[in-house]
Structures are given as C-alpha cells and as structure tokens.
Design a protein around this nucleic acid. Structure first.
Length: 473
RNA sequence: GGCCACGUGGCGGAGUGGUUACGCAGCGGUCUGCAAAACCGUUUACCCCGGUUCAAUUCCGGGCGUGGCCUCCA
C-alpha cells in the first residue's frame, strides 16, 4: 500500500518515498509565542500529528524525525512584552508553557525536536553570509536583503511570477530595495529591541527577518534537503516561498523539501475568525471556558471535530460540529468497552489504507464507524438472552478491540478521562434504592431517583441484564 | 485588480464517468412500567448554463456564490 501525499509544489498527489527510510524527516512551522494559540493554529498541530503517527507506523517510531519550531523572536513579541510591561523572555517562556499544555490536551505527540529561533542565531548568520557571498543577497542600510531576481524559480511554489506579484502588489517598497519583492533576511535593532552581532559586515547589531529562522532550524535538525515541510495554506506565500529561496540558494540545491503539505483555512460559524467580529477563540478557551457553545470541551472532541474534515478542505468551526463529535465519542467509547480485558489488537489495514490516501481522515473515520457498528451488533446479539451466541460475543469483542486500536491511532482516548468525579458509592446506593422501588412497582419513587441522578450528571441505562450508568456531562 | 481553492441530501462530510459512503438529526420497529440507552430498518443529494460522451454530480468552458493569498495571520 503506497502512501500518497498531495504536494503543493506539484499540485497533485504523489507517492511518498523518503530520502532515507531509516530517518524520515518532517518540518512543520510552529507558533510564534506572543499569545495563546487559537483554534486555527490547532489545525496544523493536529493534522501533522496524524501524519507523524502514520509515518511512525510505516517506518518505525525511531525512524521518523519531526521538527516543529518555536519562534521566540518577532516584532509582535516585542510589542506584546512592552504592552504588558514584562520582559521578552518572561513572555515567551510563559506563552510556550501554555502552548505545551494546550497541544498536549489535543492529544498531540511531542515532536522529536522543538528548536527555538533564539538558539539558532548562528546558523541564521551563516546562511546570510553564504547568500551575500554568492550574490543572492545584498546589504543596504543595515539590512540584509534577499534578491529575488537572483533566483529564476522564485514564485514556483505559489505559482506566481514576479511580474504577477508586482502587478497586484500592495507592498510598501523600502527605498533601499533593489526589487520591490526583495525580502528582509536581517534588520537593524533599535535600542531596547533584541539584538545580536550582525552578519555580512553590517556594523550595527540586529535581528533576523521572518523567514530565515525556518531555513536555519530545518537545516540544523534535518539537513539541507529533507522529506516533508508542512504548515497552513496561508504560509505558502510568502513564508514558504522565501524559505525555499533562502535554503536552495544558500546550499546550491534545487530542493529544500521533497513534499510540501498545507492544511486548509478555518472559519468560525461561517465567518472569518477575527477579534473585531468577536468570534476569536483560543484552544485554551475551548478547553476551559464556556465561551463557545456555553460549555467547556474535551481535547478529544476538539481533535475529532478537526479530523472529521479532510485537512486540505476549508473547515467551518461550529458548536454543532463539536456536539456531533461528542456524540461520536460517546458511541465509540460505549462499544469500546466490549474490548475490556482483551489484548491490544493491531490497527486494521483497511483503516490505515484510508489514511495512506493523503491523510483521508473522514474516510478513516467512516471505516471506524463500520467497525463500531459491527461491534455493537455482535455484542448486542451475544448479550441477548434468547439468542445468545458465544461466537457473536467473541466477534463483537474482537471488533471492539479493533475499534480501540483505531481510536488509539487517531490519538483519541478510547476511554473518557474523568473530567469530574462522582461519589460512586452514593450512586450505587441510589441505584439499589431505585431497584427496590421498581421491584415494588413504586414508579413515582423510581422516577424521582432517576431524576435526582440525572441532576448529578449520571445517566441510567436499563436493560435485561440490569441497570448500568455513565457520566453524561 | 492579479493568483488560487471550494460549492454534495435537514446538517456535517467522503467519493465516483454508469453500481450503498459514513456520521448527526428525523421517521418506523424491537425492548421497556414509562422514559432513556441499545439494536434493526428507512426517507431526502450532488449551485446555474452550455459543451464532450451511449452515459456527468464526477471531464471541459462560462456564470453566480463563499473563502484564501498578494498586508511578517496556521
């Protein structure tokens, strides 16, 4: 079974072949740590986490290197720190800590490396020296600028020629630029701004431009050329286009990454997410506040809601979608209980093959549903007193074990982590009281107890085998 | 203005040149003191207009609509 991935550069699905199957290398653009990550930021985190899991499954966990950087030097960081009256370091450390909590709650595995921009200033300078030395860049008024005219292929990723870009350009052209599209590799720092000794003979201290950090960090951790580079579709231009320009020209290679993957954009309730519309929502707010849909959501529900849409499609982030994801989880977990006590089952190949088709998570989830239906039907048949069949029960349990394997693979826990606890003994006591009332056909008392439990968030399920309960929330 | 995506049943969302996606909701049934849950069954679709084709939701052209990028925003 081939792994097919859509490559933005080729504009088509291509069979994935790693440069080195013992070291498959992936780079994904991580957060700029000036504020909490919003739900739009969560999409690439989750999507590429699934890719990471799939690659580990195919090539072995120890043979995949996943790098997701932390950008901790940026003008937005400087501005925010000044605004809050805290040091830049304090701001980036605190934001990073919170980011880690958020991404963990979303069920994402830790990347192999999480390099920081400020710890890679030396390789950035090195790259800039090489670019200036080979006339792909020049120095002007304390800046180092990349010369787009020096690269014939510039614009290939975005499928845009320089002429087209300039035609529709709204860029403000700094007077020291040779070409309007030239972009900054290094810029001078004003007093109070983070500053490092400058490269390329520039006398004044300075700081890196936006794009150079990713070229430097991918180089240091993955090499001059690697397998997959990912990020949001809005990064195609200019960020990734410029990364390609910097890396390819600095190293004299024609390829920075063999496959370029981009996730689609996210809207909230049909509208662009923006602070002015008041629909801007962070991962943390979804997890802990009642801002969205008047309740807090589990990380699993957020993750599932994201994966129910193919990663390249636009996604509309709605309360209705979260409620539906929550129902799906409940159903799956109920069926997954049928696998209790069984050994781990391998992940079904038909499930994996869906993911191998360019990470088609909606199809994989459809397969998961089919497995769930089978488990439910067999377990139900096996449990019926009148037509109990050991074969059906065993089949149902095996299907439930497959279901658990699929859920594990997607990073969705097969059992709910107790968000809040109830007094189990009290619940059991009330259950016994209700059973006695029912025995005596005292329906009023029986229903009263059921309502009281419901108010506690405990839902009863009567069946021939007796009454079970679960936490609804 | 330039470039690029997307438009599927009540809703979400895959996919395909002729054959069931899947889920949620709804409806009918089994079960139940009632209800819930569970299980079984089941209705509704491919934005508009042309073209190619024996056949198009699927390919091509145009239109309309929504969104993205061109503004250091995933």
């Amino acid at each position: 079974m081939d792994l097919q991935l859509y490559d933005t550069l080729a504009r088509e699905k291509r069979r994935f072949l790693p440069l080195d199957a013992r070291n498959v290398r992936v780079y994904v653009c991580g957060p700029t740590v000036y504020d909490d990550a919003h739900i739009g930021n969560a999409r690439p985190l989750i999507v590429f986490d699934v890719l990471f899991r799939l690659l580990r499954h195919r090539y072995g966990a120890e043979n995949v290197t996943y790098v997701r950087n932390i950008t901790d030097v940026d003008d937005k960081i400087n501005a925010r720190a000044a605004e809050r009256g805290v040091s830049i370091r304090a701001l980036t450390e605190e934001t990073y800590r919170r980011f880690h909590e958020d991404v963990g709650a979303l069920g994402c595995l830790a990347p192999t490396h999480e390099p920081r921009a400020t710890e890679h200033i030396a390789p950035m300078r090195d790259l800039i020296e090489r670019l200036v030395g080979s006339d792909h860049a020049y120095v002007a008024e304390g800046h180092a600028l990349f010369s787009v005219a020096s690269m014939p292929n510039y614009g290939r990723l975005a499928r845009r020629t320089l002429d087209e870009m300039i035609a529709g350009a709204r860029v403000e052209v700094a007077p020291y630029k040779r070409d309007p599209m030239d972009f900054v590799l290094w810029k001078p720092s004003k007093p109070g701004e983070p500053a490092w000794p400058s490269p390329a003979g520039i006398a004044t201290p300075g700081r890196p431009g936006w794009h150079i950090e990713c070229s430097a960090m991918s180089w240091k951790h993955l090499g001059e050329t690697f397998d997959i580079h990912g990020g949001g579709v809005d990064l195609v231009f200019p960020h990734h286009e410029n990364e390609i320009a910097q890396s390819c020209c600095a190293f004299g290679t024609g390829v920075m990454a063999n496959y370029w993957m981009h996730n689609g954009f996210l809207q909230v309730e049909g509208e662009k997410m923006s602070k002015s519309l008041g629909n801007f929502v962070t991962i943390r707010e979804l997890l802990t506040s009642e801002r969205f849909g008047a309740r807090a959501w589990g990380g699993d529900a957020l993750r599932l809601a994201m994966l129910k849409t193919h990663y390249r499609q636009p996604i509309d982030w709605t309360v209705a979608a979260l409620i539906e994801a929550q129902s799906n989880l409940r159903r799956w977990r109920r069926a997954a209980d049928g696998a209790l006590g069984l050994e781990r089952a391998p992940v079904p190949e038909r499930f994996i093959s869906r993911l191998c088709n360019d990470l088609n998570t909606p199809q994989a989830i459809a397969t998961l549903n089919e497995i769930c239906t089978q488990a439910e039907a067999d377990l139900d048949a096996g449990a019926r007193v009148d037509c109990a069949t050991p074969d059906a029960m065993a089949g149902g349990r095996a299907a439930a074990a497959e279901l658990v394997a699929c859920l594990d693979f997607l990073g969705v826990a097969a059992r709910e982590s107790p968000a809040f606890t109830v007094d189990r003994a009290a619940v059991e006591a009330m259950l016994a009281a209700r059973a006695a009332a029912r025995q005596a056909k005292n329906w009023g008392e029986s229903d009263r107890i059921r309502d009281e439990l419901a108010a506690m968030g405990v839902v009863l399920k009567d069946s021939k085998a007796g009454t079970t309960w679960e936490i609804s929330r």
